[in-house]
Amino acid sequence: MEQFPRRLLTIVTEAALERELLAEFDALGVRGYTISDARGKGGRGRRQSDWGPQGNIRIEIVCDPALAERVATQLRERYYDHYAMILFMQDVDVLRREKF
């Protein structure tokens, strides 16, 4: 079975940013993402997903390395200063090249 290398970009951030980030992704050409509610603790305190204004989300994007880099750079420039946000990347393999 042939496999193709891609990057998995994971972003954990404030739920308040969801709409804005989705608009950014569309503009950058991201073709798909997965969003889930998240809870945890970090530099800006404990974040619960129980309740709207203080909720946290985790966004996962699988795409080619260049796009992952562009998304990461843009998010760092625009959001790192004022928002609770972390971001990390991993190598993954996908089966359907045309999808990602």
Partner: peptide, 13 residues
């Protein structure tokens, strides 16, 4: 509810 959500994105600092 409404104010925190709107202020969070409009006045990030």
């Amino acid at each position: 509810i409404a104010a925190p959500a709107a202020i969070r994105t409009a006045v990030p600092e």
